[in-house]
Nucleic acid binder design. Structure first.
Lengths: 193, 193
DNA sequence: TGGTGTTTGTGGACACTGTCCACTTGGGTA
DNA sequence: TACCCAAGTGGACAGTGTCCACAAACACCA
């Protein structure tokens, strides 16, 4: 049921996950859904968690693809960029899922994926990890580290929203990638101020 | 009709502007709305434009409140902060309107408010104006000026979304204003790199 | 002044949604 | 074997966006 709903969300965002249709698509009567979810919002919450998990997976995969030892300055910088790039590309490649992932501000921790062995860390945790590495590598002054994940998250999230679903989404590929490049440089400027 | 719909959006975001209720609240039968709007989305588009206009108004008002001559470095910096602060505060004070303002990626230019004399410029234009002043004032290197509005917009927009409706919206006031402060400093760091 | 045409609003209908209630069913356990 | 509970069914209700045919009110021009 959740995976059927996920496909609806992928195609049309959170509003597209309509209870009756997901029931229909698993070949069951609408009311059957109420045996598993209190209401539509609870179903949507499950989908939202799944979407967030997919974002985390893509980020982790993109980071792993970066070669270079831990603590090596250039590699650490590339890992930060890999995180941001994955985030922004996710919002464009899967606008429906991206929207869905942030559709429910409440219960956002997606249940931490606690025990699940293969699960990747939360996006924010992945960002923190790379920032710690940047300190370790001497790229970022340790005194500026506390809390710096929030401005960076804001910048990347804003870019993702504006170019993925927002007013900048209809720009040409060239214009968008120039903006993305500028934003990447902007973050590095702020870090190595 | 638009202003009735605007109140619904203010209270509950774009999803709350339901055609039948706005008709009801202006004391008319639902179908009457179809004499003025092709469908619900067109009504929503009008509301969206109005919400964007309100954001622009607040930004402009906040900027005007800053004293200091044009081109004076410290004043220019304060004007940039005033813009960002207005943006972020709008998303918290009027989450419904903020969401609505960006609900329709299409037809986003809100018809420019062309002739209207009292109308304030679009948010993005206001930002550009202040950035030009920062160059004029010698705070920002003119060679770094082109396109820098986009990283800044991204940062501010991201902060507004994350703390206004997103996962950071339930933080304490103290935590949120610390993040806002960090983000302001982050932007200034990047500018005066 | 009177007639005509356009604008605005009405009434009724349809398909679709989320949700509630009472009811059946089937597999596993005491 | 008897029972119980989870899962699914059928029918219903209120609410929604939207379409159609019709009524009134108003402006305009002969």
């Amino acid at each position: 049921m959740v995976s059927a709903a996920l496909e609806l969300a992928r195609a049309g965002g959170p509003d597209a996950v309509v209870l009756r249709e997901v029931a229909r698509s698993v070949g069951v009567v609408p009311n059957a859904a109420y045996r598993h979810f209190a209401d539509r919002e609870e179903l949507l919450a499950a989908v939202c968690a799944e979407a967030m998990r997919e974002l985390a997976t893509r980020m982790a995969a993109n980071v792993r693809r970066v070669r270079g030892r831990y603590g090596e300055p250039e590699a650490a910088r590339r890992r930060l960029r890999a995180i941001g790039r994955a985030y922004v590309e996710f919002s464009r490649a899967e606008p429906g899922l991206f929207l869905t992932a942030f559709a429910l501000p409440h219960r956002h921790a997606y249940d931490a994926g606690d025990g699940e062995p293969g699960a990747d860390r939360l996006p924010l945790d992945q960002l923190r990890e790379v920032l710690d590495e940047l300190v370790e590598a001497g790229v970022l002054d340790g005194r500026r580290r506390p809390g710096i994940e929030y401005p960076i998250w804001s910048t990347v999230h804003g870019l993702a929203v504006l170019t993925g679903q927002g007013p900048l989404r209809d720009l040409t590929d060239a214009a968008r990638s120039r903006i993305a490049e500028l934003t990447g440089a902007f973050i590095e400027d702020a870090l190595s101020r």
